[in-house]
Amino acid sequence: MTDTHQQRDDQPISLEDALARQGNDDRIIDVEEPCQQWVLFRLAGQRFALPGKAVNEILSGDQPVYFVPGLPASTEGVIHLRGNIESVVTLHALLDLPPAEQTGMLLIVSAAGIRSAVRIDYLDDVCDIPISALKPAPDTLSSQLMPYVAALWQPEVTPQERKCVKEETNGGSVERTAIVLLDPDALFNAYQQGLG
């Protein structure tokens, strides 16, 4: 806003001034905000995500898994995928979550120079999240989870979603839990070092 556009509150703005003010508005609106792709999923009812660049493939959870004796419970075994063998791990123990009871789905994840299938309970979405929307992990996060958290993301509730949730909750409050964005390098490094 320039001085020439400043007016006293009690004076109505003329059309000419209004148009001039709009025309001089030289703010640049970045319509292509930098985004990152994330794969959103659930483990033990909690919402997590892994970066899309680390997830090579999403497979149905009913792939035959071959049990390999001599491994911790967090390693289910191996799958035979197009001529290759991939390990299958669960993150529940590493993230201090109760063990899963469903087959869910498998994400083929590459990180820390390692490639492995990771079992998830439920796939929510694959979406682009503006980098500016990512929040650092708060100190209140559990110490078990903290080393593996890259950021948090609080999804915005659209008016349509708000209406749906209000109807579902009989007008109750709309609350959306934050999604924990995981660092796959930290997860695999910890797993390799014997954690989980």
């Binding site: 035959p64 071959y66 049990f67 390999v68 004796p69 001599g70 491994l71 911790p72 390693t75 075994g77 191996v78 035979h80 063998i85 991939e86 390990s87 791990v89 120079g113 390692i114 490639r115 492995s116 695999f188 797993y191 390799q192 070092q193 014997g194």
Partner: peptide, 27 residues
């Protein structure tokens, strides 16, 4: 060849690979 995470976590450091025989793993 053994997947990296299996090699890192298996109880035996002498495990090198596996085959699949009749839907069963042979170490």
């Amino acid at each position: 060849p053994l997947p990296s995470l299996i090699a890192a976590r298996h109880v035996s450091p002498a495990l090198r690979g596996l085959t699949l025989a009749n839907q069963t793993v042979r170490l």
